[in-house]
Amino acid sequence: MGSKNISITEDAYERLKAHKREGESFTDVIVRLTEDERDIMSGFGAWSGTDKGDHARKAREQLNAEFEDGR
């Protein structure tokens, strides 16, 4: 496997270093922190009773109505 040199700020280095576990290389840290990039929206609506965002829509409508009424 080849390697690349990158430049990062001192702040970025300190942040990366803070995530480093005993025995890990910086490559290991970067791979671990970036290996599971999931779509945060993929789970929305997955719970029963949340089909098509119905609960969220109703809650938003209720909050908007209460805000408009000054409650």
Rank of each mutant, 00 (worst) to 15 (best):
N64W: 14
E61W: 06
E61Q: 12
I30F: 03
R60T: 06
I8L: 14
G23F: 03
F26R: 01
M41I: 05
D36T: 10
R15K: 08
D69W: 01
R21A: 10
S48K: 15
E68T: 10
S3D: 04
K52D: 11
N64G: 14
V29N: 00
A46C: 05
M1A: 07
E37Y: 08
L16W: 02
R57M: 12
F26D: 00
H55V: 12
E10H: 03
K58H: 13
S3V: 07
F26A: 02
A18G: 09
K20Y: 00
K4R: 11
D69S: 05
R57K: 15
A18Q: 15
D39Q: 07
R15C: 07
T27S: 14
E14I: 06
T50H: 15
E66M: 12
K20I: 00
A46K: 04
Q62T: 11
D51F: 10
I6V: 11
R15Y: 04
G53Y: 05
L33E: 09
E66A: 13
R15L: 09
F67W: 05
I30W: 00
S7A: 14
F67T: 08
T9L: 15
T27K: 11
R32H: 08
F26V: 01
M1P: 02
E66N: 10
A65E: 12
I6R: 01
H55M: 14
D51Q: 15
R15Q: 09
M1C: 06
W47K: 07
R71Q: 06
D54K: 07
E10A: 10
I30S: 02
I8C: 10
M1V: 10
G45W: 01
G23L: 10
T34V: 05
D11N: 05
S25A: 03
I6D: 03
V29I: 08
L33A: 10
I8F: 04
S42E: 03
D36W: 11
L63D: 13
H19W: 04
D51T: 14
R32F: 10
H55E: 08
E37M: 14
A59H: 08
N5K: 15
E61H: 11
G23K: 11
G2M: 03
D28R: 04
R38I: 15
H19Y: 06
I6Y: 04
E22Y: 03
H19M: 09
R15S: 03
T34E: 02
R15W: 09
D69L: 07
W47Q: 05
T34L: 13
S42D: 00
D51P: 04
K58D: 13
L33F: 06
Q62S: 11
G49V: 09
E35P: 00
E66L: 14
R60N: 05
V31Y: 00
E14T: 06
R71I: 13
A46D: 06
N64C: 14
K17P: 01
W47P: 00
R71D: 02
R71L: 08
H19L: 13
E68S: 12
R57Y: 09
L33R: 12
E66Y: 01
A65I: 10
N5T: 13
R21Q: 10
D28K: 05
I30Y: 00
N64P: 11
E37W: 08
E37H: 05
A65P: 01
R38H: 12
I40K: 02
A59N: 07
D54W: 04
T34R: 11
K4Y: 06
V31T: 03
G45S: 08
